[in-house]
Amino acid sequence: MTNPFIQFTDIKKSFGTNSVLKGVNLSLYRGEIIAIIGKSGTGKSVLLKHIIGLIEQDSGKLLINGTPLKQLSFKDKRNFQKTLSYMFQDNALFDFMNIYDNISLPLVENSNFPKDQIEKRVFTQMKQLGLTGIENKFPAQLSGGMKKRVALARALVTDPQIVLFDEPTAGLDPVRKKNVHLMIQEYQEKFGFTAVIVTHDIPEIFNISQRIALLDEGIIRFEGSKEELFNSQSKILNSFIKGENF
């Protein structure tokens, strides 16, 4: 395996007296789909938000290509963050904007593309995700599944290198869950981005992930491939996969 693209080394994070991450060590590699699983409230989303810069660790290092993120120059940090995209658990679509404006926003605000090129990219993205014809609608007028796809379209429209998915299938029925998983897999294969998925969808997520990490009580209990996961003798891991208390 090549060197890790992003590496968490002994990351700790507390909110007041609540210690959420207690020394996380985890490696993410280019072009892979990695699923981070764990019970609710164990800090999976907090971990994800460290990568995008929404949360900063109390101690430990977050390495980008071997260099601590904090040591990167402003320009390098910004360039790295521009390669990231984040899909929020509750989509975080802008209620006051129509679907076209929601998807085009990162391009309108950050790129130098002319208007017609932005339009072309947005409509191509919408077509690929089956969103044709809803560009003038508002998020409140869409179903849960459609909103997810709009959020995914917004996350992918900038051609990111890394897409962070925070429980992308939360609140969806099994059929739509499967569709979202397949969609992530299809686009990951097509565009080659690194996908980091925080999820509870076990065992469905194993079908599309190359690697799995289990976060429990603030530390990574397991990190490895599907095969390693199923061959593991770890009680915690087996209990979690079977949905038992541990």
């Binding site: 995008i52 929404l54 910004r78 984040y86 929020f88 679509l93 605000e109």
Partner: peptide, 25 residues
């Protein structure tokens, strides 16, 4: 109220992840 709702529904965080300054926006 509008900006408050945007805050609690993570829309302001979404702006940050898109490298858009929420204060400017």
């Amino acid at each position: 109220a509008e900006i408050g709702v945007m805050r609690i529904s993570e829309q302001i965080d979404a702006l940050k992840t898109m490298h858009i300054s929420p204060v400017r926006f």
